[in-house]
Design a protein around this nucleic acid. Structure first.
Lengths: 314, 314
DNA sequence: CGTAGTACGCTGTACGTATGACCTCTCCCC
DNA sequence: GGGGAGAGGTCATACGTACAGCGTACTACG
């Protein structure tokens, strides 16, 4: 029995080349001997490895964890492996030692990023899909922050809120830029000047967000509602309000983004703009998968959904 | 210039074999041509790939995200790549198609698990390190849940609590078994019968934990304090208490585990047993790294620290 | 001047798989 | 009965690297 025959059988190319009797014999023997094809040799010979690299700055934000799960699941259903790469893109994405290490083992890359430097190039000529950053050079998947923001603002407007502050993420990036633009556009459309509204920044951790929220809430011109770039910030604001004895939503209404688990755990629970992070991750992988097969996939923008809870409508 | 010389230079084995002049020339040329060593070929030839597999059931719990980050960072500092593998170990860990895919590309495995089946074997003879599950066959790293639980219970005891309930994770596994044992031991040591105390189970999501907590809090024999297996459960209990108008900590005191970011965002913030998940992940990788170098590393148990906040001491 | 020693470099082969080209047999049809 | 087609199978080679072993030239030294 030749090695070629075995290869043909195990890679599923048997029909028309190998009789089903020998194919069965091969499979039986493979099981018997505990044979496992060597991925390195396969990758070397075929130039493709069924593995994608997931490049990311920080793994700890809960939204990211769920996106990751979506990507991982889609990949594993397609028989692919996900390689996790931590990288701050400082060198334009191509020089990272880790990415160098993966040469020949990684077929393509998923960049999970709020910010992508212009200098980013496809590493080693491998295809790239970008998550949450829209640009023209590479395929991308992103969330419909515009729609979500508009829905949130209209909700607040319908409840009678006119002076609405913005509690912003200090992370920057397109995602939060869109939310800010949507917020400003709504105010202008209703004759308010965004520049006169109360705004503030915070990082995505409890200590910072509570401290920043405390300041915003003690502002002499406190608005009647706050749009918060994220549920973590919104939760920080609710915590600060509770601490200061300000009623939510009576004293101040709060809206977040993402519908993290956290959103149901605050008192009161958060009104928030929900996205589907699993779908985001899965879509990103699917685009990459399509590119790997030579197709030219369409960029995608995933919808949002406003979830109303106690932090706005008491 | 021969290919051997290039290999020698680029793998850092030049001293004593290659003159520094040619070595420099090689490096210059490599840079010039944008040469990147092919990881697949290297792995095939040398039998080692500088990559470790991270096997995990679920990526979304925040504690896990931070553990992952610790492992990823340690690995990348050691020049290793982390491959993410989602697997429920149903087949004993060895039959997973994904693990098969990685054959020859993965040097060893990190199992992040609260439960590890006895049937788990080292896949393909590759070394394994287990996180948060102690057993005798493989090296492991785990948290000192006993110490943390004892500290939490003594804290409650010092505040005068005698009837203390246990809000348990339905995930099961050693981690939570240790917490339950510690809880029961404390009660017995003070003349209480654990079997007479109020206990309940919940999964790690907001909806379940709030619903389960609501039931516990409405129990006719409500204890004066609850030990909760995790901050998510504790936060659910605080949310339920707020909803029911039960004062925390006046009506019921609440202690959690993990010191998630969440712990500072509830009202009041949570008293909790803190661990260092980054250290856990890093330690796990270090053990595996040592095993890969033929050493026999010592198992590790990482310490805890009680953080007192408003949910127990008003 | 011959020889050993050393510094430097190259040749050849193996890792395990995929694949194009080739071989051999059988069957069928004119 | 000769020739073509097709099914079933094998040979040889290439992927890019690592490494053992083998030159080759130059230096040192008796």
């Amino acid at each position: 029995m030749s090695q070629t025959t075995v290869s043909l059988v195990l890679s599923g190319k048997a029909p028309g080349r190998v009789s089903s009797a020998t194919a069965d014999a091969v499979r039986a023997a493979a099981r018997e001997l505990g044979y496992r094809p060597n991925a390195a040799a396969r990758a070397l010979r075929s130039g493709t490895a069924s593995a994608v690299g997931l490049v990311v700055r920080d793994v700890t934000h809960p939204f990211f964890g769920r996106t990751l799960r979506g990507a991982q699941q889609a990949a594993s259903e397609a028989g692919h492996v996900v390689v996790l790469i931590q990288d701050d893109y400082a060198g334009g994405g191509g020089d990272s030692s880790v990415q160098g290490l993966s040469e020949g083992v990684i077929d393509g890359f998923l960049f999970f990023a709020a910010k992508v430097p212009r200098s980013l190039r496809e590493p080693g000529g491998r295809p790239v899909v970008i998550v949450e950053y829209e640009q023209s050079r590479m395929p991308f998947v992103r969330l419909d922050s515009e729609g979500g923001t508009a829905a949130a603002m209209e909700h607040l407007h319908a409840l009678g809120h006119r002076r609405i502050g913005h509690f912003r993420s200090s992370a920057g990036g397109q995602t939060f830029g869109r939310r800010h633009d949507g917020w400003a556009a709504h105010l202008r459309a209703h004759g308010e000047d965004p520049d006169e509204q109360v705004t503030g920044f915070s990082a995505f951790d409890a200590t910072s967000s509570i401290a920043a929220a405390r300041e915003l809430l003690q502002h002499p011109d406190r608005p009647t509602a706050f749009l918060c770039d994220d549920d973590l910030l919104a939760a920080g604001m609710v915590a600060a309000a509770n601490e200061l004895g300000i009623d939510v939503p009576g004293g101040v209404a709060v809206v977040g983004f993402d519908d993290l688990d956290l959103a149901r755990l605050t008192s009161p629970p958060l009104t928030t703009v929900r996205f589907d992070p699993e779908a985001l991750g899965a879509a990103a992988f699917e685009l990459l998968h399509a590119r790997l097969q030579g197709k030219r996939p369409k960029n995608r923008v995933l919808p949002s959904e406003l979830v109303v809870r106690g932090s706005t409508a008491g």
